[in-house]
Design a protein around this nucleic acid. Structure first.
Length: 290
DNA sequence: GCGCAGGGGGTCG
DNA sequence: CGACCCCCTGCG
């Protein structure tokens, strides 16, 4: 495999720190020179933002220009989305200003599915470690700049991994969920290839919910952060719960039910609820002391 | 220092 | 609605 490079003018609304720390991905790490290295499908990618340009170096199967365009959602007009959301209220203006550079990545559906099952009742450092361990044990090695990186294992690569082995890898009670979901995918009880052919988001959501370990919040994350890219969903985790209560309900955080939040999100943000969620989540979590 | 609650990007029974 | 695996944090 050969190295590729690709340089492009920095798009509007594009900032690596915002993209990688807004909570949608687990496989990027920052280097000393402020560049980031990550694994995308069967490629290792290093990306650096400087002086109005994005410089990318990669090694792997895919054409770097096509991959970048797709993965970073470069064909969507985020400025337009931000302008629309900004008209809704001051909260939107503030949070968008804070997270201007956020883009919703088009991540591999299978990887997103497994990653967010792992995320349940878990914290980000441990989620990252677990995914790293799974990849080291079952993914493909790729050498890049004298280091070995590992791709996320395919369903086939996890085919014979037992629940006990998952437990040893530190997955905890998620062991069974990962095992059973993988088996269902392999048997095509849920066909990930065909899932996106379904136009109706509610129907896709229902299908995802049949997989062990996938509840409402995880399903919405998959719908939003993967190639399914359904911008109208609104994942509600503890942070979104918190910020919505503070901004729109003015009530006791733990007394509010999710249905009420869902309803407010839908009526206020409509088809762009997912983006609104990201700006609010990122803003609130990065300003924890408020 | 060390030990022990507390809680974390929820889901399941 | 409580339990759940693991691990990291904060407090006593």
């Amino acid at each position: 495999m050969e190295e590729q490079t690709y340089t492009l003018k920095t798009p509007e609304c594009f900032n690596l720190k915002d993209i990688f720390t807004c909570g949608q991905c687990f496989r990027w790490q920052q280097n000393e020179d402020k560049s980031y290295t990550g694994i995308v499908k069967q490629n290792v990618i290093k990306i650096k933002q400087e002086n109005g340009t994005i410089k990318i170096k990669s090694i792997g199967k895919d054409n770097i220009q096509e991959l970048t365009t797709q993965y970073f959602d470069l064909e969507r007009d985020y400025k337009k989305i931000q302008n629309k959301l900004s008209q809704i209220d001051e909260n939107m203006k503030t949070s968008i200003k804070y997270g201007q550079g956020i883009r919703l990545l088009n991540q591999d559906l299978w990887e997103t599915l497994i990653s967010f099952i792992i995320s349940a009742n878990n914290n980000i450092p441990r989620i990252q470690k677990i995914i790293q361990r799974l990849s080291e044990n079952y993914g493909n090695p790729i050498k890049f700049e004298n280091k070995i990186y590992y791709t996320f294992p395919t369903p086939e690569q996890l085919k014979d991994v037992t629940i006990e082995t998952y437990r040893k890898l530190g997955l905890g009670f998620r062991d069974k969920r990962i095992y059973e979901t993988t088996q269902k995918i392999l048997k095509k009880e849920v066909d990930l290839q065909k899932l996106n052919q379904n136009q109706n988001t509610q129907e896709v959501r229902e299908i995802l919910l049949t997989l062990p370990g996938v509840g409402p919040k995880v399903a919405d994350c998959i719908l939003l952060f993967s190639t399914l890219k359904r911008l109208e969903v609104f994942p509600i985790d503890v942070w979104v719960n918190r910020v919505m209560n503070e901004l729109y309900i003015h009530g006791e955080e733990n007394k509010i039910n999710k249905k009420q939040i869902e309803q407010i999100a839908k009526q206020k943000f409509g088809k762009l609820a997912g983006l609104a969620q990201q700006y609010l989540f990122y803003w609130r979590r990065e300003n924890e002391g408020l």
